[in-house]
Simulated assay, not measured.
Amino acid sequence: MLKLHKTVVASGLLVLASVAVAAEKSPVSANVALTTNYVWRGVSQTAENSAIQGGFDYTHSGGFYLGTWGSNVNFGNDAVTSSDGDGASMELDFYGGYKFTAAGVNWDVGAIRYLYPDANSSLEYDFTEFYVGGGYGPFSLKYSNASDYQGVTTKSGTYLDAAFSMELSQGLALALHVGKSGGDGVQAAFGKKYTDYKISLTKEVGGVGIGLAYTDTNMSGAQEIKKGVSANDGQWMLTFSKSL
């Protein structure tokens, strides 16, 4: 009887080990997050309100990847959108690319499609960006280009993203970011080509990522929005995230 019990336990452990290995090698992953403010390139996408976000990723061992990600958004009331003035309420992104290492640099080349399913097509919110980025140690640099930028413009928009990250102590990580939005498309959409900044601290506690960040831009004058819809002045964000 004891021998049988040991055999059952051993078999059970073997099954659990096999499942664990299979899960570890799975090319599919998921993520979910709750944030107090969804800020994209220094501009609030939720009128400084909270957002629920999540996505799925497929990563091939050869370096190719595909993914999708979504979040609620709030661009305020816009009479063009509908008769009752409701703006877009959702952002849905699809992306894919290829990651590889060359000359000691971790490269990432790909494209991303930004969609706003419930926005009126006349607003032309949907747009596509192509990007190339490289990382070396704690530093990374990424360049994105949209030949037809978001909004009622046919002009291009660019974004140059420079970042630095490091672990401080006991899993606490610091990240610094500066980004430059340029191109005539950005000028048409925001009235100014601008720079955004971000500093964040993150730490995993009990399998949940906790992040605190502060972001700001160099917007001034008529382009500076201190509160509410499309706020681009100094903003704080607290985010809880989980990878599945």
Rank of each mutant, 00 (worst) to 15 (best):
residue 20 A to P: 04
residue 228 G to Q: 13
residue 192 K to C: 03
residue 229 V to E: 00
residue 181 S to E: 12
residue 152 V to Y: 08
residue 160 L to P: 00
residue 230 S to C: 09
residue 202 T to D: 10
residue 217 T to N: 02
residue 145 N to D: 12
residue 173 A to R: 13
residue 126 D to Q: 05
residue 90 M to L: 14
residue 173 A to H: 12
residue 30 A to C: 11
residue 16 L to P: 02
residue 73 V to W: 01
residue 229 V to K: 11
residue 166 M to S: 15
residue 161 D to Y: 03
residue 96 G to S: 01
residue 36 T to P: 04
residue 188 A to F: 07
residue 146 A to V: 02
residue 25 K to G: 11
residue 79 A to V: 13
residue 30 A to S: 12
residue 226 K to Y: 08
residue 27 P to K: 07
residue 173 A to Y: 06
residue 29 S to C: 07
residue 206 G to I: 06
residue 202 T to G: 14
residue 195 T to D: 12
residue 61 S to P: 05
residue 139 F to L: 14
residue 31 N to C: 06
residue 128 T to G: 08
residue 195 T to S: 13
residue 157 G to Q: 00
residue 158 T to Q: 11
residue 3 K to D: 15
residue 184 D to G: 04
residue 151 G to A: 04
residue 188 A to H: 10
residue 37 N to Y: 09
residue 66 L to T: 05
residue 132 V to G: 07
residue 36 T to W: 10
residue 139 F to P: 02
residue 118 D to N: 14
residue 237 M to G: 00
residue 217 T to G: 02
residue 26 S to E: 05
residue 94 F to C: 06
residue 165 S to D: 01
residue 145 N to K: 10
residue 142 K to L: 10
residue 4 L to A: 15
residue 169 S to A: 15
residue 99 K to I: 00
residue 19 V to F: 15
residue 64 F to R: 08
residue 53 Q to R: 14
residue 213 A to K: 06
residue 190 F to S: 07
residue 11 S to M: 13
residue 151 G to E: 00
residue 13 L to P: 06
residue 138 P to W: 03
residue 196 D to Y: 06
residue 3 K to L: 14
residue 156 S to V: 05
residue 161 D to C: 04
residue 83 S to N: 12
residue 242 K to S: 09
residue 117 P to V: 01
residue 136 Y to W: 10
residue 238 L to I: 13
residue 208 V to L: 08
residue 150 Q to I: 06
residue 34 L to T: 01
residue 141 L to A: 15
residue 91 E to S: 09
residue 60 H to Q: 10
residue 84 D to A: 13
residue 77 N to S: 15
residue 18 S to G: 13
residue 219 M to L: 10
residue 44 S to L: 09
residue 217 T to V: 07
residue 68 T to M: 12
residue 71 S to I: 10
residue 45 Q to G: 03
residue 183 G to Y: 02
residue 48 E to W: 10
residue 100 F to Y: 11
residue 75 F to Q: 00
residue 44 S to G: 03
residue 220 S to M: 08
residue 54 G to H: 05
residue 10 A to C: 11
residue 71 S to P: 07
residue 176 L to S: 02
residue 122 S to R: 11
residue 99 K to W: 00
residue 228 G to E: 08
residue 219 M to K: 11
residue 194 Y to Q: 01
residue 187 Q to P: 03
residue 231 A to S: 14
residue 5 H to D: 13
residue 14 L to R: 11
residue 63 G to P: 00
residue 33 A to L: 13
residue 241 S to K: 09
residue 243 S to L: 11
residue 151 G to V: 01
residue 113 R to E: 12
residue 137 G to V: 04
residue 103 A to S: 14
residue 195 T to L: 11
residue 111 A to T: 10
residue 117 P to E: 06
residue 119 A to R: 01
residue 162 A to T: 09
residue 77 N to F: 10
residue 137 G to Y: 01
residue 33 A to G: 05
residue 204 E to C: 04
residue 241 S to Q: 09
residue 178 V to C: 12
residue 63 G to Y: 00
residue 203 K to D: 00
residue 186 V to Q: 04
residue 178 V to L: 14
residue 190 F to D: 05
residue 201 L to N: 02
residue 85 G to M: 02
residue 193 K to V: 04
residue 107 W to A: 06
residue 142 K to Q: 11
residue 199 I to V: 14
residue 46 T to E: 02
residue 36 T to C: 09
residue 49 N to T: 12
residue 207 G to C: 06
residue 49 N to C: 06
residue 34 L to V: 13
residue 207 G to K: 08
residue 186 V to E: 04
residue 187 Q to G: 11
residue 204 E to M: 08
residue 209 G to S: 03
residue 38 Y to S: 00
